[in-house]
Amino acid sequence: MANKALIVIDYTVDFVADDGKLTCGRPGQEIEDSIVGLAQQFASDQSWIVLAVDRHEIDDPWHPETKLFPPHNIAGTHGRDFYGKLETWYQKNRNYPKLYYMDKSRYSAFAGTDLDMRLRARQVNEIHVCGVCTDICLLHTLVDAYNLGYRLVVHADAAASFNPQGHDWALQHFKNTLGAEIVGEE
Rank of each mutant, 00 (worst) to 15 (best):
H155W: 14
F174W: 04
D59Q: 12
R118H: 12
L6A: 02
Y11C: 07
K21M: 08
A5Q: 04
K104E: 02
G131V: 04
H155T: 08
H140A: 15
P164W: 14
T141N: 03
D81I: 01
G28Q: 07
Y96G: 08
F162E: 14
Q165E: 15
A159I: 05
S161Q: 06
R122H: 12
Y100K: 13
H128E: 07
V183N: 11
D19Q: 11
D157A: 08
E32F: 02
D59T: 01
H63E: 12
G112T: 07
S105W: 10
D60Q: 10
A109P: 11
W48N: 09
M117A: 10
I182F: 13
A52N: 01
W89F: 08
T177G: 09
G37E: 03
G131N: 03
D10L: 05
G28N: 08
I74R: 00
T141K: 00
C130I: 06
L139K: 15
G79D: 00
L38G: 06
A52D: 00
T77G: 03
D103E: 15
F174L: 00
K98Y: 12
S108F: 05
G37W: 06
D157K: 04
H72D: 04
R106P: 06
E30C: 11
E57R: 10
A52P: 04
K21P: 02
I31M: 07
Y90W: 12
D45L: 11
L115W: 07
T12F: 02
G76Y: 09
I31W: 06
N147M: 13
K92N: 15
A121L: 08
T12M: 00
K92Y: 09
V8R: 01
F15T: 02
V36L: 04
N176Q: 15
D60P: 13
C133F: 14
L68T: 09
D103N: 14
H78K: 12
R151I: 14
M1H: 12
E181H: 10
A156Y: 01
W89S: 04
L22Y: 05
K98S: 09
S161I: 05
A159R: 04
G79I: 02
E126G: 03
S34K: 11
T113D: 03
H155N: 15
R26L: 15
K92L: 14
R94V: 05
V16S: 08
G37P: 05
D59P: 10
C130A: 13
F162L: 11
D60E: 13
V183P: 01
V50K: 02
H167C: 06
D10R: 01
A5S: 11
P70T: 11
A160K: 10
Q123P: 02
A2G: 10
S47T: 02
G28Y: 05
H78P: 05
A43W: 03
R80G: 01
K21E: 08
C137V: 07
N125E: 14
